[in-house]
């Protein structure tokens, strides 16, 4: 038994347990939320098609591999798999683009490989930084979110470097 399995099952039990304790109509609530979940996923489809087109073409042309080959001597020094670097570059810029690229990486190298795990951890522990900061500062009069952007990118950079390290430490 691993920690993540216990955590996932534990959260499911906790949510159902609390719901029943508070006499919530759990089945009705579940179905309503599930409907929203499906809707959200399918609303992503047009954007994913758009980005998948660009990323599929880029990979088929061989340009992505050429980039990986060019940077691999550099990334190997810090123990970061070069195959994940395109994802690290795309992640702060485009969420759907990163998602398409993640699927591509997992299918090519295997979801449970070192590359696949590092890509998964990187994707799950970072956000679409540029988009988020732009949206948040679009809501107020104060512009020039330089500090917010710089601090968030520092966080992203640490996540990139740590994702490979964390996978090595935990999966050996």
């Amino acid at each position: 038994m691993d920690v993540s399995s216990i955590a996932v099952v534990g959260i499911v039990l906790l949510i159902f347990g609390y719901g029943l304790f508070k006499r919530t109509d759990v089945s009705d609530a579940f179905c309503e939320g599930a409907k929203d979940g499906v809707k959200t996923a399918f609303e992503l489809l047009p954007t994913l098609c758009y980005l998948m087109l660009a990323i599929s073409m880029l990979r088929a042309s061989g340009a992505l591999e050429a980039l990986v080959r060019a940077v691999s001597p550099l990334t190997e020094k810090i123990g970061f798999p070069a195959e994940v670097l395109p994802l690290a570059i795309l992640r702060p810029v485009s969420g759907s683009g990163a998602l398409s690229l993640l699927e591509d990486i997992l299918n090519r190298f295997g979801a449970d490989s070192f590359v696949g795990r590092t890509a998964s951890v990187l994707m799950a522990s970072t956000e679409t930084t540029f988009y988020t900061v732009a949206v948040y500062f679009g809501a107020v009069k104060a512009k020039k979110p330089r500090k917010a952007l710089a601090a968030s990118l520092a966080g992203d950079l640490s996540a990139f470097m740590l994702s490979a390290l964390a996978v090595r430490l935990i999966f050996g």
């Binding site: 959260i11 609390y18 579940f30 309503e32 599930a34």
Partner: peptide, 12 residues
């Protein structure tokens, strides 16, 4: 989405 909706409605 279903699980989170239970959490929202139950007050969790």
């Amino acid at each position: 989405g279903g699980l989170i909706n239970i959490a929202n409605r139950s007050g969790f």
